[in-house]
Nucleic acid binder design. Structure first.
Lengths: 157, 157
DNA sequence: TCATAGGTTCTGCTGACAGAATAGTCTCGC
DNA sequence: GCGAGACTATTCTGTCAGCAGAACCTATGA
């Protein structure tokens, strides 16, 4: 069986039961392998309960499977608005210096101001994330300095 | 930030903290949004505890993220190939200085080296795109300097 | 009818999680 | 420099929901 994303308790239950029955196994045998109780697994399969990560991990392993947990950006539909920025960066974006540099860069590149602004803010936010740390206003100025320096440095040969 | 697979409680904790701090938020504000207690989130971020699916779902939503749970065949998921990077950045990534700084940052944050490396390269590539200009090696060094400076600067109030 | 296999409901212990208390850090005024 | 206050995170304590095990239910075969 291929990887399947699970959205709700009853769907998790259905997937667990499907996987178990496809392997021709009883709840009791899976329970023994997983170190979980028969009734608990039965209830999960019936969409009841709120399992802990440890229980799910044990259960998945007993089923010869692998539990994967992902923490994604808030799942966008293609028409979703751009992801929200960290607060310090939102404030920084309102500063006259930032706006002036964006206007300048927009004129230089011929790119629409809104596009330029959004690209720069996203880039700065990505740098903050890579640094694993929230931004101060000083950090924001430093990032903008670097970005502007980048735009003014000679092109590569 | 891209989708990241979580294998263990301490890694989940790191991911949760990274996501929260990158957004410049406090545990208290996230806790209020998630309907969870401050101490509980703090302990999860510190790799302690065994959260239920409901708690994790609430927490992810409060972080503007989306919890995805997969039940896979028990083979190791193949690691996705790294997104293609601009050539100068690819070359830069091989330099001893870059590798040393990544090892250092990885140790500081407790994050896997491969994740740290990928995040930083992505951030630098995003900055290059925002500058609307191909990178020179000097540019790469400047970006890395800024990133390292960012990681060492005092946290915001 | 009885025994067995498999699953479901019930009861109670204990760990998930809330809220209080405490610890750590920073800023500001004296 | 020191103390007070504010803010943030961590530790502690207690409640109750996750989960074990007993009891019960249903279907099947001898």
């Amino acid at each position: 069986m291929c990887s399947v994303e699970i959205h709700a308790a009853d769907e998790l239950g259905r997937r667990l039961r499907m996987k178990r029955t496809a392997a021709g196994r009883t709840i009791a045998s899976v329970a023994a392998d997983a170190g979980l109780s028969v009734p608990y697994i039965a209830n999960l399969e019936n969409g009841r309960g709120n399992p802990t990560l440890a229980a799910l991990t044990s259960l998945a392993q007993a089923l010869g499977a692998h539990l994967r947990v992902h923490l994604d950006e808030d799942s966008p539909s293609p028409t979703a608005p751009p992801p929200s920025l960290p607060d310090p960066l939102t404030q920084f974006a309102k500063l006259p210096r930032f706006r002036a540099e964006m206007a300048n860069l927009s004129t230089t590149t011929g790119q629409p101001l809104t596009t330029t602004t959004e690209n720069c803010l996203t880039a700065m936010a990505t740098m903050a994330a890579a640094a694993n740390k929230p931004l101060t206003e000083l950090d924001c100025h430093r990032l903008l300095d670097t970005l502007i320096l980048l735009t003014h440095s000679p092109a590569p040969h």
